[in-house]
């Protein structure tokens, strides 16, 4: 099908979110934002934390689009990001697109980002790169769900790059390349969905702001018998991963749902 939105010229716009402590003690954190292909909406602010939502400002991703999201969390601040909707990378008709996320976490800071599914349509050719610099004692909790194809499609091509480092060197460097029309056993096999919950901390004793509504023990909540694997990285931290047929079947989704319900009942 070629009912994609009209093509447009190479579009690159930076979306930025920065969180810093308030000017005086007891005042809310300052949230600086810039809108690009995604707009930032501030949901709440406290003395050491903020929550923002990312909202698409138009049809993303089209061929030639370059989304760049910069996130900067200052020392001892916490930020939670929620996506308002999933993202669809449409058929670029031969033109590739890019989705870059650059995160810088200050000392003792924390970022929780629960992304919605990123769907790679037939004909799409996407690079999705996430670069994170962890300050001493910081923590990153990131959920990334990539889906090959919309309903009834096989899906296009996607290259997922992750590069996480702290002052001690690389923590996670990974490149996963998948293509809906060329399924490789051992990479994703026949599966359409790659669901990953990343939980990384820089190795340091600094206190990290707690986010009370988070599943602290996700690896326990998502047992291997459920089909998810928890990878313990060499430098500490985990990737909990599930490969499957549909996002709603993911044990990661169920574990996060359970956690949300428990909190609502309190």
């Amino acid at each position: 099908m070629s009912t994609t939105a009209p093509s447009r010229a190479q579009t690159r716009a930076t979306t930025a979110v920065g969180v810093t402590r308030g000017a005086s003690p007891g005042t809310p954190v300052r949230v600086d934002t810039a809108d690009g292909l995604l707009a930032v909406r501030t949901v709440s602010r406290g003395t050491d934390r903020a929550e923002v939502a990312l909202v698409a400002t138009g049809a993303v991703l089209l061929g030639g689009d370059h989304v760049l999201v910069r996130v900067d969390v200052a020392d001892r601040c916490a930020l939670r990001i929620t996506d308002v909707g999933g993202t669809v990378a449409y058929d670029g008709e031969g033109v590739a697109c890019r989705w870059d996320v650059e995160v810088r976490l200050g000392r003792g800071s924390r970022l929780d980002w629960y992304g919605m599914p990123f769907v790679v349509s037939d004909g799409a050719d996407v690079v999705r790169a996430t670069t994170v610099r962890l300050g001493a004692g910081s923590r990153l909790v990131l959920r990334e769900t990539v889906v090959l194809g919309r309903d009834g499609e096989r899906g296009g091509r996607v290259a997922l790059h992750s590069d996480v480092a702290d002052d001690g060197g690389p923590v996670l460097v990974e490149e996963v390349t998948a293509c809906g029309t060329d399924r490789v056993p051992g990479v994703l096999g026949a599966h359409r969905v790659l669901d990953t919950l990343t939980d990384l901390r820089s190795t340091d004793d600094l206190d990290v702001p707690a986010e009370s509504d988070l599943p602290e023990a996700v690896p326990d909540a998502v047992p291997l018998s459920d089909g998810a694997a928890t990878l313990q990285l060499d430098r500490g931290g985990t990737l909990t991963r599930w490969l499957g047929a549909a996002t709603h079947l993911s044990p990661i989704e169920r574990a996060l749902d359970r956690r949300r319900r428990t909190l609502e009942e309190r």
Binding site: G186, V187, L224, A229, R241
Partner: peptide, 19 residues
């Protein structure tokens, strides 16, 4: 350089290895 080493992963193989 160490940075230039390929990072091409195979998630399904990694999951099987853990199990």
């Amino acid at each position: 350089t160490p940075e230039s080493i390929p990072a091409s992963g195979a998630p399904q193989t990694e999951g099987w290895a853990e199990a």
